[in-house]
Amino acid sequence: AEDTGVRVELAEEDDGKKSSIALKLWVEDPKKLKTKYKDNGAIEFTFDLENEVPEDVAQEMIESGFFHESDIKIVGKSIKDRVALIKWKRERTVLLQV
C-alpha cells in the first residue's frame, strides 16, 4: 500500500471469519497531513468489513476531533488500503483451504 504517512494496522488477530475487526490508526509522518496534527497517539476502533465504508470512519474521526476535514482523503485512503489487504488475505486463505 502506498505510504500515506498514516498507518493502519490490525489491533487483533484476524481469524478470517468475524465480520468486525479491531484496527489501530496512527500518524507516522505528520508532514504528509494538510493540517497541523496534535498527536494524540494511536486510535483504536472496530470496523465491520461487510457493512461499513472506510470513508465513513474517516468522517467520524474528523467529527470526533482527531483530524481536520482537509485530511479526510488521506485518513480514508489509509483505512481503505488496510481493509482491502485484510479482505485480500482472507480470500487467499479461503482459496488455500479449498
Binding site: K24, N40, G41, I43, F45, S64
Partner: peptide, 27 residues
C-alpha cells in the same frame, strides 16, 4: 489532555493509546 476514549454520535468507540513502537525492531 486528550480523552482516552471518544464515542462518536453514531456509536463507534475510538480508544486512544500510545503509538506502538516500530514493531520491526523486536521481530
Amino acid at each position: 489532555g486528550s480523552a482516552a476514549q471518544v464515542v462518536h454520535s453514531a456509536g463507534r468507540r475510538f480508544i486512544v493509546s500510545p503509538v506502538p513502537e516500530a514493531r520491526l525492531k523486536d521481530q
